[in-house]
């Protein structure tokens, strides 16, 4: 067995709170490993530090305690060059065309080659040929997500971090995008860490589902998803094994959701 690609060793991240004194602990005691080519989904109630986790792995943020390493190399306070990151919010530059947005990472990385052709190729792979000269605000939410996807795949990152990327989309678009993501992943076999609060999405996409506790986030339990591939997210939900897994994981998640809800109510 080869070594895991991403290793999180006793990670904690605390933020100074606004009042100055008390600290806010986003995540604590996180131990997690991800193997090369694996698709791991992280689920947990809202506010359990899922996004913090991705920021730490990408190098945008630094843990207060613990150690993160990728491919045996410690992640320090710099942004990793071999990760791609799909944010929940729109992150395209509103003043650049679709084409220019997809070329941008190639410009930033000073990669050789024909940027324009590469960008066009990826735009056609996500089904956006013909929209190269449009501006992001002229596209629908789903199309903007496709542009973001193309802009991430275009520079071939080894690791893909995804922070509820499809949560703002309507159900139909969302299922379509999930299937497209699975297809892209099948062709490229990147290592994916996918954060979501939607358990069905997590099971349908991932090889493994990690359940976090409510604030502060800890790893509560991990589940192997032994469903066959290739999958179709629309159909897999009706399989017997899917339902069994859903029930089993929901058992672990429910408690945390309830606790998070109670905490929110207590804070008004």
């Amino acid at each position: 067995m080869t070594d895991p690609l991403i290793v999180l060793d006793h990670i904690a991240r605390r933020f100074p709170s606004q009042s100055g004194r008390a600290e806010f602990t986003a995540v604590q005691d996180i131990d997690l490993t991800v193997n090369e080519g694996e698709f791991v989904a992280v689920v947990g109630p809202s506010g359990c530090g899922k996004s913090t986790l991705l920021n730490l792995i990408s190098g945008l943020d630094t843990p207060t305690e613990g150690l993160i390493s990728i491919d045996g190399e410690r992640v320090r306070n710099t942004v990793r060059q071999d990760v791609g990151y799909l944010f929940q919010k729109d992150a395209l530059l509103p003043w650049k065309t679709v084409q220019a947005n997809v070329e941008l990472p190639l410009v930033f990385r000073r990669l050789p080659g024909d940027h324009a052709a590469l960008a066009r190729d990826w735009l056609s792979r996500v089904g956006l040929s013909g929209f190269e000269r449009n501006f992001p605000h002229q596209l629908s939410g789903g199309m903007r997500k496709r542009v973001a996807l193309a802009a991430t795949f275009v520079y071939g990152p080894r690791i893909l971090l995804m922070d509820e990327p499809f949560s703002a989309l309507d159900v139909q678009t969302r299922n379509l995008m999930e299937n497209e993501l699975l297809e892209l992943w099948r062709q490229n076999r990147k290592t994916v860490l996918f954060v979501t609060h939607d358990l069905e999405e997590a099971i349908a996409l991932a090889d493994r589902v990690v359940v976090l506790t409510s604030n502060p986030g800890r790893v509560k339990k991990e589940f192997q998803i032994d469903l066959g591939r290739p999958r179709n997210v629309n159909e897999i939900r009706f399989e017997e094994r899917f339902r069994a897994l859903h029930e089993e994981i929901w058992e672990a998640l429910r408690e945390e959701v309830a606790r998070s809800y109670a905490a929110q109510r207590a804070h008004g």
Partner: peptide, 15 residues
């Protein structure tokens, strides 16, 4: 300036 846009550009390799 939107934090997400800056983070995204940094992950994409912007100095």
């Amino acid at each position: 300036v939107d934090r997400t846009i800056v983070d995204n550009a940094r992950v994409m390799g912007a100095n």
